[in-house]
């Protein structure tokens, strides 16, 4: 009898404890979500008024002249990110594949270590590096140098996600290819990498999302511009830089423009994240 009561009491204690912990986790998750929604909501609230056809199709106007937009900055960011993708993808994907397949030796360990270190370097330091390598020698700011900084930022993300993607391809698939008498290169390039494609693309999209909002590495590389510029060898307008310039200005109408730019940036990054998730889901459902 006493035993039964004791058991009942521990059961009750357990129920209370689990109830409390569920409540606390829910509270934490709730406040995190609330903070996020608050920020999003505020950016939408403050930025939506700027969004319109002129804002999306015009270049910035000089101080005092109302209107103007961020069209050149959107295009500039697009061009710069595109160049960085072209620079970082082959190297990052091949390194990730190498690490996944031959990843036991000392060479692989040091590459992995360097990549992890690189992931932790502040982006402004990488901007400085790009400045030293690609700006100072030519005495000329350029979108290319900004793209280079972006590429360095993207590399560790691409390497890590590619390595994981390749590793997650079942051994049975790799062995199936080898058992057909396919050489290692054909097995890797034509069977294993395609099988990991969706996860690799997801990593790429996430790395793009990561750099798209970066401002610091652009300060002394792409530099920014008030005009249309399509030549990557020249300084080029960038959305985050434009937001920065508008935001630190003393003019309320420019502050308004900064919020509009921030809204566009957030929407783009959000879209990239959703796309990344969709790519992953399409693999899961196949």
């Amino acid at each position: 009898m006493a035993d039964v009561i004791a058991v009942r009491r521990t059961m009750q204690m357990r129920r209370v404890r689990s109830g409390v912990s569920v409540f606390l986790t829910a509270l934490c998750a709730g406040s995190a979500a609330a903070a996020l929604l608050l920020i999003l909501g505020y950016v939408v609230h403050a930025g939506i008024a700027s969004i319109g056809l002129p804002f999306l199709t015009q270049v910035p106007h000089p101080v005092g002249i109302p209107g103007g937009g961020v069209a050149n900055a959107i295009v500039g960011t697009g061009i710069t990110v595109a160049i960085s993708v072209v620079m970082a993808t082959p190297l990052g994907v091949l390194t990730g594949v190498y690490l996944a397949i031959y990843g036991r030796g000392a060479a692989a360990s040091s590459i992995r270590f360097l990549s992890d270190v690189l992931a932790g370097v502040p982006s402004i330091a990488i901007g400085l590096f790009a400045y030293v390598v690609l700006v100072a020698p030519f005495k000329h700011f350029s979108a290319i140098s900004g793209a280079f900084a972006f590429a360095v930022l993207m590399l560790p993300v691409i390497i890590r996600t590619t390595e994981e993607a390749i590793r997650s391809v079942p051994i049975a698939i790799r062995e199936g290819a080898l058992a057909l008498g396919l050489p290692i290169y054909a097995t890797t390039l034509r069977v294993v990498i395609p099988a990991a494609r969706a996860a690799i693309i997801t990593g790429l999209l996430l790395s793009i999302a990561r750099v798209t909002g970066e401002t610091a590495p652009l300060l002394f590389t792409a530099f920014g511009s008030q005009f249309w510029e399509f030549n990557p060898a020249n300084p080029m307008a960038q959305l985050p830089l434009q937001i920065f310039n508008y935001a630190i200005s003393p003019y309320p109408e420019w502050h308004q423009q900064a919020w509009g730019g921030a809204l566009i940036l957030i929407v783009v990054v959000l879209f990239l994240n959703i796309l990344a998730r969709a790519a992953l889901r399409s693999r899961a459902s196949r």
Binding site: A172, E175, G176, A179, V191, P194, A195, R197, R286
Partner: peptide, 13 residues
């Protein structure tokens, strides 16, 4: 040639 215990068709083909 070899056939494995679990069918392992190449998933992307």
């Amino acid at each position: 040639g070899m056939v494995f215990q679990r069918p392992n068709p190449f998933p992307t083909m």
